[in-house]
């Protein structure tokens, strides 16, 4: 599903070169729920941006669903983002002037769906997250948890193969965080691959696999429900 081999990402200024990712290797299989953890500045967000085709990389190979992502045109990248990837952000990132239905509709507009198809998918996605009755509300009229559910509906409306979530519960209280997490688990059970960046160890433990990124490199652990983490990477880093 997702394969990154020896990915390097270097930010250059006149004086300094910063290696955000260094020989980064990762394989994610279809249907997996992967949690990505790591200290601030370790490269988690850079990884997520590259995985979501929002940023390029300096060198290496990245295959998404069998497609070589290196040197894709902006149009192709946008089309892949639109069709295969769904994004969920910590700050929800809903467009404040658009009501819920219009927010969810945005990616479908760019994909060129007909009005009837858009309406059907918007209704379906909002009902899936329990907000079918509030389609005409503006984001500001909702709680944080509800806004995040709208963001999830927006990500789901395009039926992506692959969900990228950047601290999706970071701005929510524990009860809402739990609800959102349960929703993500349901989505994953329905077959969508999820990669979630989180600082919350409890949420990370609920994922099938936990990856820690340190200094731009990956330490890969498989987590089993109720058991101890089993180290599978040679890059020995403990997971708390």
């Amino acid at each position: 599903m997702l394969s990154m081999k020896n990915i390097n990402k270097v930010f250059k200024t006149d004086l300094v070169e910063t290696h955000a990712l260094r020989d980064f290797n990762l394989e994610v299989k279809e249907g997996e729920f992967v949690a990505v953890t790591g200290p601030s500045g370790s490269g988690k967000t850079t990884f997520l941006n590259i995985a979501g085709l929002l940023e390029g990389f300096t060198n290496g190979d990245y295959f998404l669903d069998g497609v070589n992502i290196s040197n894709l045109s902006d149009n192709k990248s946008a089309a892949i983002r639109n069709e295969k990837i769904g994004f969920i952000f910590q700050g929800f990132n809903l467009i404040p002037d658009l009501n819920l239905a219009e927010n969810v509709e945005v990616p479908l507009r760019y994909r060129g769906f007909s009005r009837s198809e858009r309406d059907k998918r918007v209704k379906q996605a909002l009902e899936q997250v329990g907000l079918g009755a509030r389609m005409k509300h503006l984001p500001a009229q909702l709680s944080g948890g509800q806004q995040q559910r709208v963001a999830i509906a927006r990500a789901l409306a395009g039926e992506p193969r692959f969900l990228l979530a950047d601290e999706p519960t970071g701005n929510l209280d524990s009860m809402m965080a739990r609800q959102v997490m349960e929703l993500l688990e349901d989505i994953n059970k329905a077959g969508t691959t999820i990669i979630m960046v989180t600082h919350d160890p409890e949420l990370a433990r609920r994922a099938q696999r936990n990856i820690q990124i340190v200094d731009g490199q990956v330490c890969d652990f498989t987590m089993y429900q109720g058991g101890q983490p089993q180290l599978v990477s040679d890059n020995v880093q403990a997971v708390s």
Binding site: L54, N82, N93, V106, Y110, R154
Partner: peptide, 16 residues
């Protein structure tokens, strides 16, 4: 620009 960032992330091309 933040709204544009969201639109780009969810599938809008630069041309759009």
């Amino acid at each position: 620009a933040p709204e544009v960032g969201v639109r780009r992330a969810i599938g809008a091309s630069r041309a759009q």
